[in-house]
Computed example of a mutant assay.
Amino acid sequence: MIAKLQRVLLVLWIAALAGTLVAWPLEWIPGYAAVTLVAALLVGHGFVLAGEFMAMHWTNQRDTAPRAGLRDVVAAWWQESLHAPKVFFWRQPLRHGMWKDHLPAGAPSARGVVLVHGYFCNRGLWNPWLSRLTHARIPFIAVDLAPAFGSIDAYAPVIDAAIVRMRKVTGHPPIVVAHSMGGLAVRRWWIDRAPDDLHHLITLGSPHHGTRLATLGTTQNAQQMRVGSDWLHELQAAEQPATRARVTCVYSHCDNIVFPASTATLSGTRTVHLPGTPHVAMVDHPVAWNLLQEQLRMAPAHPGASDPAPCSRTAP
């Protein structure tokens, strides 16, 4: 559904741009109006992102997370302005099915990987990861969460099916990497399962305690991600404390979607701070990939082995 919707939006954007470029020399519209419209179509997303970054920077001034300097914020805005179109105009609408789930027989990895995307995204978000995992012959499943704008609770069966399927292939609980809302979806699935049903969960910019930006959302899952929502309180109350030792929370003081920054962390987990890294670009940060490789190397060859103790660090 998301891929189709994003393709429709992409076609409308191309049509508007092409129509303006044709109408301009033919003087069907005034020159100043054509220039304004072309500029809005080409760089309008940068202005929207600028609003997000300003709100983020102002909100984070009163947060307990490390503070970002103005130079960090500007650099993160520029990075996201270049990175987000690649994801929302290319990977997700046009290349979401490029890499199929990889479940090779006799794969050398003792663990499989399940990848879970976030809000208004699909599995195409993970394409660079899927390429590397395929070439490394590491088993993986990348899910598509549906319904796109329904309750986060509804995603549990999708995640469960992927994890059950992976366990049948590898014989071991998998590692899950989840971006943004995907981290909440996995936590929701986990409350009905044993702590050791996952080897480890890595969340990238997940709004574990909500995000102020969700106050602008009207969909059910956006409302659930509001800071202080009843849904988040119920999730935390239902969780098993033992699961926290199996979680790594990656967050950033320049996350333009999840802020205040500390809302992307959870007590009792390992936390990794990525300075100057915006929300979508966090997926492609080398530290995120390295954390997965670390877990793959550390994965025990037998069930029941203990995981490393939680710790915190800041990535370079």
Rank of each mutant, 00 (worst) to 15 (best):
M225R: 05
G44E: 13
I152T: 07
L9T: 05
I138V: 15
G210C: 03
P173L: 04
G112T: 10
Q293S: 11
W28M: 13
A162H: 09
R167Y: 02
G69T: 09
P93L: 02
A261Y: 01
P308M: 09
C311G: 10
D144C: 09
R67M: 12
H57Y: 15
L9C: 06
C121W: 01
V48H: 15
A3E: 09
M1S: 15
V113S: 05
Q223W: 07
R246I: 09
R132H: 08
P303Q: 01
W289V: 12
D230F: 07
A161M: 07
L235W: 03
L49F: 08
C121G: 05
D196S: 09
W24T: 06
L130S: 06
M225V: 01
V35M: 11
D284A: 13
C254A: 11
L12C: 14
P25S: 01
T218I: 07
W24I: 08
A185G: 14
D197I: 06
D197K: 04
R123M: 01
V8N: 11
L235I: 10
I175E: 01
H96C: 08
F88R: 03
W190D: 08
P310L: 13
R111A: 11
F259P: 00
G205Q: 00
L49W: 03
A178V: 06
W58V: 11
P310A: 13
K86P: 00
D101A: 14
H285Q: 03
V186T: 04
D153Q: 13
V177D: 02
H285D: 11
Q236R: 10
L198W: 03
L133Q: 05
L198E: 02
V272I: 15
G31D: 12
C254K: 00
A185Q: 08
R167S: 12
A315T: 04
D255C: 00
L21R: 02
L82P: 01
S151G: 09
W90E: 06
F140K: 06
A154C: 02
P93E: 01
R244M: 13
L274S: 00
